[in-house]
């Protein structure tokens, strides 16, 4: 299918096969009433295979609404969504298949656990796909291994696990459907610093090992800067920036204005530069920043 007039804003994904295309998507709440409100406003995005993407925006920026369009949970008021070249709004399009290909892990996903033990809960997804019992169990086992949950927890009640472990089980529940694209909405919410790091490291490893496309939704720049190849900044339902972290953080002043902030190192590097130290301000991680300062001052 050829889409005419499609706007290629991103350079970050060039040269890879395109998995998802959002073509001029808008989502309008309470259309034709005085309460009308555009949660998404003319969003165009391409999501190629194998990329690690961060979607950033504060509450109400439209980021959660956006990701629910990617697996057809919400239907756009205007525009089209294409998955592997097919329009998902076509009448005979297989939504169930789409949802197994585009896995979505909601915020606080441990709240949807319901089975008597961890293993059975993870089986729920693949079972819904109509696979035979052997395949279902194999997938559940693999998924639990992938998220790094130790074997001794497999037959425990999910409600007896710690917060971080529950979250792993919930992520495994989606991984067991073997999605090509994995979307995680605030996967670190409510965890302590070490727990956050562990979950993000696990996701990064998963992405590397399986070649999965991963979309991480977050309101914290610090969380995603280290991990992702590309950042999409959402503001008022629109795409504000879509580029590599380094390029996005160059706009740290504009980000500040819309209530987001670049990682603290960005501010430190800019402050040093203002003081006359000729450092490269594009460092986004502590290691890069330390290296840069050491080069100039050490």
């Amino acid at each position: 299918m050829i889409i005419l007039g499609f706007d290629h804003r991103s350079n970050a994904g060039k040269g890879k096969q395109v998995a998802i295309i959002l073509d001029h998507i808008s989502y309008i709440y309470e259309k034709d009433t005085p309460m009308e409100h555009r949660a998404l406003d003319d969003v165009c995005l391409t999501i190629p295979d194998g990329q690690f993407i961060g979607i950033i925006g504060h509450t109400g920026s439209g980021k959660s609404t956006l990701v629910q369009h990617l697996n057809g949970l919400m239907e756009a008021s205007e525009g089209h969504v294409y998955y592997n070249g097919e329009d998902i709004y076509d009448k005979d399009y297989d939504m169930k298949k789409l949802r197994s290909n585009v896995g979505l892990v909601f915020q606080y996903p441990e709240h949807q656990l319901f089975e008597i033990d961890v293993f059975t809960d993870v089986c729920f997804g693949p079972k819904n796909l109509g696979l035979d019992k052997k395949e279902v169990e194999l997938r559940a086992y693999q998924a639990l291994k992938q998220v790094g949950l130790p074997d001794e927890y497999f037959y425990q009640s999910p409600f007896e696990l710690s917060g971080g472990q529950k979250r792993r089980v919930a992520i495994a529940g989606v991984m067991a459907m073997k999605p090509k694209v994995l979307i995680l909405d605030e996967p670190t919410a409510g965890l302590d610093p070490k727990g956050r790091e562990e979950i993000l490291d696990m996701i990064k490893r998963l992405q590397k090992e399986t070649g999965l496309t991963v979309i991480l939704v977050s309101h914290s720049m610090d969380d995603v800067a280290e991990y992702v190849d590309r950042i999409i900044v959402m503001n008022k339902g629109r795409v504000m920036y879509d580029d590599t972290p380094k390029e996005v953080f160059k706009n740290y002043k504009e980000l500040e204005e819309v209530g987001l902030s670049a990682p603290q190192v960005t501010y430190i590097m800019h402050a040093l530069k203002e003081k006359g130290l000729n450092v490269n301000t594009t460092a986004t991680t502590i290691e890069e920043a330390a290296e840069e300062i050491w080069k100039k001052l050490g």
């Binding site: 169930k96 949802r99 909601f106 729920f124």
Partner: peptide, 16 residues
């Protein structure tokens, strides 16, 4: 609202 959210989460896991 919570019902809505859990329902969506289970649909994302293939529930019908």
């Amino acid at each position: 609202e919570e019902t809505d959210k859990i329902m969506k989460a289970q649909i994302a896991r293939g529930a019908d």
